[in-house]
Write a protein that binds this DNA or RNA. Structure first.
Length: 951
RNA sequence: AGUCGCGUAGCUCAGUGGUAGAGCACCUCCUUGACAUGGAGGUGGUCGGUGGUUCGAUCCCACUCGCGACUACCA
């Protein structure tokens, strides 16, 4: 084995072997007994997208769960796939065409869609290739794409069934219209940001005059250009200022039309002038009011948001913002502008195009949502689906209770074509295909045209948990894996996706699509900012794995910017933050990092330094394994074998350290099990980290050395220790595997031949003789490892002796190579017994030259000292320790002790505490106080001695 | 306006009704045969503020300050 772990070489090789072995597919049902099923649906990423940190994060968690359950023996399916992402993908291809000076209309629908398929073919493998780098153990043999024929069939089936039940309808409504994409979008695809604008106060003259007033009413508006589509002015019915005008007509400036004044309680008399212009065709509230009052709807825009033939001639063809300028100017010249105030308003913009969304009257298809939402709401209230953490269910409830009908048609070309046909008289027919429609409605040879629109991408995503398993057929996979076990996703798509899967799953499968929804936080940069191209703070997970040179990183961050002028700033920042570029860390380090950061679904400020820490952890594990293998096999530092593992077989005596590490391992496994069951990946990671580094490496490996390297040890003792080393390491690799699949596999392959005889002899609990990959072995279980309180107590005491001596050594700067003598004074029978048995450990780990228990009354040299229980540890100072330094050190320890003693005395002299606190707590404090007092007394005496003798 | 969350060591974050923890950074010593991506020792926090409940609050409650997210509305 190499001296350092170098992940780059081995990860790809290992992944290819896993994938080609078929080990990612769910185990088949065993004869006779039913194996529990475990299933996760991968949230399908955009087929033409690339992997980002959010994916790396979520995929790591899903893979950890998947590997864990697979090792626990469940029949485990992690279903992969990609999403056609209608708008996003279509836009990418349109931009490509644009670069060639073409437009999709030049190509025509068929050729354009063909071109998108071609693009999908070229770029669709990028993200799946990147997923492989992360080690994701999805069942690639079941890979799906939302526009595959079988999934498209499910989409059509759902549409037709919902339509037949009256849950899908077509209607002319006001929709969110994107005038750049030329399509309707759903409420969720509209983002409203606060922007600076103006409030224009415009005078509308009263027809026939207004003797009791000024002769006009003033309306306040943020969109003066929509004046051309006004069909009323509304006032609050209780507003005394305008009551007399209700029912009268107003002159609508610039149009020659007159419009009525109406009364509606929606109007807030306190805002603006208290008069509102009503434009039913271009404002959602006005639309509703228009319906209430039977007002006409005048559409004044073309699909590209230019003024149409319903506007006066001089404005026709103008863009809405040009029209605004002209209209305001024309009103001003007529003296009809009372004032213009600055005003902050929320401007709705398309989430893809950033274009200002126009409320626009069009024919669209809608899903009637209330009947679907109710069961979906109830399923979470009943706990059939649980959110983790639970507070997200509140967010879910809020939305489900206020949800509106879902506009599912999109005026795009890339997507699932709506299965509806029109005849020339306006008849609409919905069916699975044209033939079915003709038959069902006896349409004969009548000319039919299919609806040109496609469905919202989320329509097909909503079916993902069952469409991928073969629905509408009743397949074995559906029976086995639906409902799925858990959905792992970000809170940002609870509404887009989670809620819709709940509704569709309950509707068509009669059950929830998943039992748990684990909501992850968002990965942000180290300052808590969202990672985005324009901020130039994006870190590609693959660059963390493989590393990237500074220039390449700068190039990556500064090319293809929407706003190229940001490039110099981004470059400067990047060069400052990563002067050396990014070093390679390996996949396992990245995975361990995100697992360790995955706590409580809060957002994660991603700190590259932590990945470095876990890369070191990989190296630690690598070297610990190297030590074990060298110890067992008698190999040299180049890894050449010079002996077999036969020495492991035969009689074995277990040392206290052997029993201790097994006991600690059992404890670790129970922590990990509890943590993973609770989706506390951070707890699982830290339990494993702490065991591996602080117990196995720092203590156990060191404690084996005095046994293995001493001629005083019997061969049975050495064998017991060697065997324990192999057993614990092999099982530790299995325990770490779900989080760190690559390094554990690589090491396990080397440990396996050594462990094989032990496995065959039944000495390795839970290991499978036939498994040729660690991912196919069993996850270790706490109950398979013996707890040993006696060993734990004893090792704790041994550690205490060692730590106290090290403390003296450390603070006195005694070099590790310098061996020192240690004397023990006032050691009672118990302490003498402990030391008698374990002197070899203390001697070795504390770097002792000699260890001597003093007789009562024996004279002592001037020494540096420490206390363990009632025993005083003395390190003679001659030639080693400076008296002044020891006086300082003792004074510091005494001061700390006295402060603790003060606190404890205060607490114990409080009657209420003694009366009310748990008795065992009071007892523990009393014991602690007594020990501290005795030790401090001893240290004070020692301090006096050093003072007298040293001066 | 409503809902949710956050504020703990220089930085990134865990945590608990009983004398505060990790990683990174920092200081000292050390290349000892697993590992300098390392070892040993150490520095560092009145747990945002005020008040309350309690024998005891960083933790529970109220208020408050600062920050963030989401939903709705703003003519």
């Amino acid at each position: 084995m190499d001296k350092a772990y170098t992940p780059g070489d081995i990860e790809r090789r290992i992944y290819e072997r896993w994938e080609s072995s078929g080990a990612f597919a769910p185990s088949s049902t065993q004869e006779g007994g039913e194996v529990p099923a475990y299933c996760i649906m991968l949230p399908p990423p955009n087929v033409t997208g690339t992997l980002h940190m959010g994916h790396a994060f979520q995929h790591t968690l899903m893979d950890t769960l998947t590997r864990w359950h697979r090792m626990r023996g469940d029949s485990t399916l992690w279903q992969p796939g990609t999403d056609h992402a209608g708008i996003a993908t279509q836009m990418v291809v349109e931009r490509q065409l644009d670069a060639e000076g073409k437009h999709r209309l030049d190509l025509g629908r068929e050729a354009f869609v063909e071109r998108v398929w071609k693009w999908k073919g070229e770029s669709g493998s990028t993200i799946t290739r990147q997923m492989r780098r992360l080690g994701t153990s999805v069942d690639w043999s079941r890979d799906k794409f939302t526009m595959d024929p079988d999934l498209s069939r499910a989409v059509t089936e759902v549409f037709v069934r919902l339509h037949d039940e009256g849950l899908i309808y077509r209607g002319k409504r006001l929709v969110n219209w994107d005038p750049v994409l030329l399509t309707a979008v759903s409420d969720l695809e509209v983002l409203a940001e606060e922007e600076n604008g103006s409030l224009w106060h415009i005078k509308y003259p009263v027809v026939g005059g207004d003797p009791s007033g000024t002769g006009f009413v003033v309306v306040a508006t943020t969109r003066p250009e929509t004046l051309l589509g006004d069909t009323a002015v509304a006032v609050n019915p209780d507003d005394d200022r305008y009551r007399h005008l209700v029912g009268k007509q107003l002159e609508l400036p610039l149009t020659g039309r007159t419009i009525p004044v109406i009364a509606d309680s929606y109007v807030d008399a306190a805002f603006g002038s208290g008069c509102v212009k009503i434009t039913p065709a271009h404002d959602f509230n006005d639309y509703d009011m228009g319906l209430r009052h039977g007002l006409p709807q005048i559409n004044i825009f073309t699909p590209t948001a230019r003024l149409n033939e319903n506007a006066p001639e001089e404005y026709r063809g103008l863009d809405r913002f040009e029209a605004r300028k002209k209209i305001v100017a024309d009103l001003e010249s007529r003296g009809l502008i009372e004032k213009i105030e600055p005003h902050k308003l929320k401007v709705p913009r398309g989430d893809r195009t950033n274009a200002v969304i126009e409320p626009y009257l069009t024919d669209q298809w809608y899903v009637k949502i209330a009947p679907l939402a109710e069961p979906a709401l109830k399923a979470v209230e009943d706990g059939r689906t649980k959110f983790v953490p639970d507070n997200w269910s509140r967010t879910y409830y809020e939305w489900m209770r206020n949800i509106k009908d879902w506009c599912v048609s999109r005026q795009l070309w890339w997507g699932h074509r709506i299965p509806a046909w029109y005849d020339e008289t306006g008849g609409i027919y919905v069916g699975r295909d044209e033939a079915e429609v003709r038959k069902k409605h006896s349409l004969g040879e009548r000319k039919l045209t299919q609806d040109a629109d496609v469905l919202d991408t989320w329509f097909s995503s909503a079916l993902w948990p069952f469409s991928t398993l073969g629905w509408p057929d009743t397949t074995a996979e559906l029976r086995r894996f639906y409902p799925t076990s858990v959905l792992v996703t970000g809170f940002d798509i609870i509404f887009f996706w989670v809620a819709r899967m709940m509704m569709m799953g309950l509707k068509f499968m009669g059950d929830v699509p998943f039992k748990h929804v684990y909501i992850t936080g968002l990965i942000r940069d180290e300052n808590g900012d969202k990672m985005s191209k324009s901020k130039g703070n994006v870190i590609d997970p693959i660059d963390i794995i493989d590393g990237i040179a500074l220039d390449a990183l700068v190039a990556k961050r500064t090319t293809g910017l929407m706003q190229p002028h940001l490039a110099p700033g981004i470059e400067k920042k990047t060069r400052k933050q990563f002067p050396e570029g990014i070093a390679p860390h390996g996949t396992d380090a990245l995975r361990f990092t995100v697992a360790a950061l995955a706590s409580s679904a809060r957002d994660i400020n991603f700190d590259l330094g932590r990945v470095g820490g876990y890369r070191n952890f990989c190296n630690k594990l690598w070297n610990a394994s190297r030590f074990v293998l060298m110890t067992i096999q008698g190999v040299d530092a180049q890894g050449n074998l010079s002996g077999g593992s036969g020495d492991l077989m035969g009689d074995a005596d277990l040392s206290v350290a052997d029993r201790w590490i097994v006991s600690r391992f059992a404890d670790t496994l129970s922590k990990v099990d509890a943590a993973l069951n609770d989706y506390r990946f951070d707890f699982a990671a830290s339990a494993l980290y702490e065991f591996t580094w602080y117990e196995f490496c720092d203590w156990y490996l060191e404690l084996t050395k005095p046994v293995l390297q001493s001629e005083a040890s019997t061969s049975a003792q050495k064998r017991g220790t060697r065997r324990t080393l192999v057993i614990v390491l092999e099982a530790l690799l299995r325990a770490l595997h779900p989080i760190m699949p690559f390094i554990t596999e690589e090491i396990w392959q080397r440990v396996r031949p050594v462990a094989q005889p032990l496995i065959a002899a039944g000495q390795v609990r839970g290991a499978r003789l036939d498994a040729d990959s660690v991912m196919l072995t069993a996850y270790p279980v706490a109950g398979e490892y013996a707890r040993d309180d006696e060993a734990e107590t004893q090792v704790a005491a041994i550690k205490d002796y060692i730590l106290k001596v090290r403390q003296i050594r450390g603070e006195m700067n005694i070099a590790p190579s310098r061996k020192i003598p240690l004397l023990l004074r006032d050691a009672d029978a118990q302490a003498q017994l402990l030391i008698g048995r374990n002197a070899h450990y203390v001697q070795r780990l504390a770097g002792l030259e000699t260890l001597k228990v003093m007789e009562a009354g024996e004279a002592e040299p001037i020494s540096a000292s420490a206390m363990v229980g009632n025993t005083t540890l003395l390190v003679p100072m001659a030639g080693l320790i400076d008296a002044a330094a020891e006086i300082d050190r003792l004074t510091k320890v005494i001061r700390k002790n006295e402060s603790d003693i003060g606190k404890l005395r205060g607490k114990l002299s409080n009657d209420s505490f003694v009366k009310n606190a748990k008795p065992e707590l009071v007892d523990a404090d009393r014991a602690k106080l007594a020990e501290l007092e005795a030790q401090t007394e001893g240290l004070i005496k020692q301090l006096e001695r050093v003072r007298q003798l040293g001066s």
